[in-house]
C-alpha cells in the first residue's frame, strides 16, 4: 500500500508524487494500491492524474483505499476518483471544485468551455471586470498552448480549486511531454540542468521555437502573477521553480516527474492589478 500523506502545493508534496512514480514506473500488470491520508489539495489531482495515467498505460490497476474522509470527499467532488473505480460524484454543496479533466492535445475548443463554464463565469467568482477575467483566461491559455506543444500526442491533465473565503483560485496544468530541460538542450545542444532550463525559459523572449520569435507567454505570466500577488510553480522532471511577488525559489528533486506541472495561484480579491497596464497607440505598433 502506497501512502500519500498531506499533499499540498509545495516541494515536499511533489517529491512524494515523484518518489511514488519512480518506484512504480517499470511495473506492468500490477495492482497498485494507494491511500491518501490527511489533506489533499484538489488541484494536485492534475499532477497525480498524470502519473497514474502513465502507470495505467502500463496495464497496472490503480486502487484507492483507506483514504481520509476529507480527501475522499474532495476527490469525489472533483471527479478524480471516478477515473479509478465506481466512485459516484459527490454533490459539491459549496460549488468550489473545478473538475479534474484528462484532455487530448486537440481539445482546445473544449478547454475554452471548461475554463469559462467551470471557472471564470461561475456565480461564485467575485466581481471582476472583463479585462481582469480575460487576463486570467489568457494566462491559463498561454500555459495550455505550451502544454499542447510539449505533450505531442499525449494527454494534458487539468484541475483546480476555488477558495472563496481566501479569494484564491489554484489551477494546475500537467503534461507528460518532454519537459524544459530536453527542449532547451536539444535546441541548443547544451547541457543545462532542469532548474537552469526552467529559469532560462521564464525569461522574456527566451524560446526554443525554430525560426519563430516567442518566449513571451511565461514571462508575461510571471509579471501578471507579481501584479496579482499570486504564485506560479513549475515542476519539470527533476526541477522545481516557484515565483511570487516576494520570492523566486528553485530546487532539484530526487528522481524525476514524468513531464511538466504548471501550478498557478490567482488572487481573486484584488481588483487593482490589471489597471496598471499601459495604453497602446494602435497606429504605432509596427
Amino acid at each position: 500500500m502506497e501512502v500519500l500523506q498531506n499533499i499540498n502545493n509545495n516541494f515536499g508534496s511533489y517529491q512524494q508524487l515523484i518518489s511514488f512514480y519512480e518506484k512504480h514506473k517499470d511495473d506492468e500488470f500490477m495492482n497498485i494500491s494507494i491511500s491518501i491520508r490527511s489533506w489533499f489539495a484538489a488541484n494536485m489531482s492534475s499532477a497525480l492524474g498524470a502519473v497514474l495515467d502513465i502507470l495505467s498505460n502500463n496495464l497496472n490497476t490503480i486502487l484507492f483505499s483507506n483514504n481520509s474522509e476529507g480527501a475522499e470527499t474532495i476527490l469525489k467532488k472533483n471527479l478524480f476518483l471516478s477515473y479509478y473505480g465506481n466512485y459516484p460524484k459527490k454533490y459539491d454543496k459549496y460549488h468550489t471544485t473545478i473538475p479534474f479533466q484528462k484532455l487530448k492535445q486537440t481539445d482546445g475548443t473544449y478547454f475554452k468551455e471548461y475554463i469559462f463554464n467551470q471557472l471564470l463565469n461561475r456565480d461564485e467568482m467575485p466581481h471582476m471586470s472583463k479585462a481582469a477575467r480575460d487576463s486570467i483566461a489568457e494566462a491559463i491559455y498561454e500555459i495550455f498552448v505550451n502544454a499542447q506543444m510539449h505533450s505531442q500526442t499525449n494527454s494534458i491533465f487539468v484541475c483546480g480549486q476555488f477558495f472563496p473565503n481566501k479569494d484564491k483560485i489554484e489551477f494546475t496544468i500537467t503534461d507528460v511531454g518532454k519537459g524544459f530541460k530536453s527542449s532547451v538542450n536539444n535546441h541548443f545542444n547544451s547541457n543545462l540542468t532542469s532548474v537552469q532550463a526552467i529559469k532560462w525559459a521564464v525569461q522574456d523572449r527566451h524560446t526554443t521555437k525554430k525560426d519563430t520569435p516567442g518566449g513571451i507567454g511565461l514571462a508575461r505570466l510571471s509579471e501578471f502573477i507579481k501584479l496579482n500577488q499570486g504564485k506560479m510553480q513549475i515542476v519539470s522532471y527533476d526541477g522545481f521553480y516557484e515565483y511570487t511577488a516576494e520570492h523566486e525559489k528553485s530546487s532539484s528533486f530526487i528522481g524525476e516527474f514524468p513531464g511538466t506541472v504548471v501550478n498557478l495561484q490567482f488572487n481573486t480579491g484584488d481588483e487593482n492589478w490589471y489597471s496598471l497596464k499601459e495604453e497602446v497607440d494602435i497606429n504605432d505598433i509596427f
Binding site: 522574456d204 523572449r205 518566449g215 499601459e278 505598433i285
Partner: peptide, 16 residues
C-alpha cells in the same frame, strides 16, 4: 487595448 498590448510586445520581440 489588451490585444494591442500583447501585439506590441510580440512585435518588439520579433524585431529583436
Amino acid at each position: 487595448n489588451n490585444g494591442a498590448i500583447s501585439l506590441k510586445r510580440v512585435v518588439e520581440t520579433a524585431k529583436s
